[in-house]
Simulated assay, not measured.
Amino acid sequence: MPLIKPDDGYLTLFNLFETATTEGQDRVVDEMKKIVDNATYPGWISSTVHAGVDTPGTLNFIQWRDLAALEARYAGEKFKTKTVPLFNQLATSARLLKTELEFTQHHPDLGDSIEVSPKRDDYTVFVLLNVEPENQKELLDTLAKPDEWLKTVPGYRSHTYFRGIDGTFIANYAQWDSKELYDAFHTLPEEQRPADVREGRLRARNLATGRFANSFRAVHTRSAEL
C-alpha cells in the first residue's frame, strides 16, 4: 500500500486532470485504472487514482524511485504517441506535476505513517499554489512547518507539502474525515485562528500567484513488488 513517508526519497508525480462532466471523469478514471493495473515500468513504485468530489476531475498520486526513472517512462514511444494524445482528448486540462516531499504532518491517531488507499474513507483535498521560482522557498518556509493547532481541529487527519521541482509551484495533499468538517475548517473566520497561523496565511496569499483546489476520493491503487 502506498505510504507518505518523509524518508523514502521518492519522486512524487501528481497527474491532475480536469473534465467538463462526471461522465468524462469516469472515462479518465477507467483509462487510468488500465494503465495502473498493467504498470511494469522500471523505477515505478505505486499509483493511486483519485476521482473528483466537488468538481469533475481526477488526480493520480504516483511514486517513482527517482526523476530518471520517470523521464525514461516519458521518453517511451507508447507514452508519447498513445497515452498523451488519449488523455488530451479525454480531459479539458492536464498537468503532470513532478514534486519532492518537503514536509508532512498527521494526527497521532493515524499511527506512524500516512496511507493513501481506497480502503480508507479520506476526504482528500489537493491545493496547488503557483509561485515565482525566487519565492518558492519562502512560500514553503511559511506553510510547510509544524502546526499543533491543526491537530486539534475536528476532522483533521494529515497534510503534506510537496515542492515542484521546476520551482513554479508547491502542492498540499491533505486528508480529512469528511467534506463537512473540512468546509468548517476552510471557512473558519480568520480571527478564530491562532495569530501565527493568520500571519502565515496572509504571507502565503501575498507570495502565491495562483491557486487551484479540488477534493477527491481514492478509488484505485496498485504498488510494485519491491
Rank of each mutant, 00 (worst) to 15 (best):
I4D: 12
D7Y: 00
D7I: 08
G9F: 11
G9T: 00
L11C: 01
T12L: 02
F14L: 02
F14P: 01
N15C: 03
L16A: 01
A20G: 03
E23Q: 10
D26Q: 09
V28L: 08
V29T: 11
E31V: 15
M32D: 10
I35G: 08
V36H: 02
N38Y: 12
T40A: 15
Y41P: 03
Y41K: 01
P42W: 03
P42E: 10
W44C: 10
W44Y: 02
V49N: 00
V49E: 05
G52K: 11
T55L: 12
P56L: 06
G57Q: 09
N60Y: 14
F61P: 04
I62N: 02
Q63S: 13
Q63P: 08
W64N: 07
A68S: 15
A69Y: 05
L70R: 00
L70F: 14
Y74I: 05
Y74Q: 06
E77R: 05
F79D: 00
K82Q: 10
T83E: 07
F87W: 03
L90C: 04
A91F: 03
T92D: 09
S93P: 04
R95H: 12
R95Q: 09
K98Q: 11
T99I: 09
L101Y: 01
L101V: 05
E102G: 11
E102T: 13
F103K: 11
Q105H: 02
Q105C: 04
H107W: 00
G111M: 05
D112W: 00
I114E: 14
I114P: 15
K119R: 09
D121W: 15
D121L: 06
D122R: 02
Y123R: 03
F126Q: 11
L129M: 08
N130H: 11
P133W: 03
N135W: 03
E138F: 00
L139D: 14
D141T: 04
L143I: 13
K145H: 05
E148F: 07
W149M: 08
L150G: 05
L150K: 09
P154K: 07
G155L: 11
G155N: 06
Y156W: 05
R157P: 10
H159P: 04
T160M: 03
T160R: 10
Y161T: 14
F162Y: 15
R163K: 09
I165F: 14
I165K: 01
G167E: 08
G167T: 01
T168G: 14
F169L: 12
I170S: 05
Y173F: 15
Q175C: 12
E180H: 13
L181W: 12
Y182P: 06
L188S: 12
E191I: 02
E191D: 11
R193Y: 00
P194I: 08
P194S: 04
D196G: 00
D196A: 05
D196F: 07
G200L: 01
A204G: 12
R205E: 08
L207D: 08
T209E: 12
G210P: 06
R211M: 03
R211Q: 05
A213V: 01
N214W: 04
S215W: 00
S215R: 06
H220E: 09
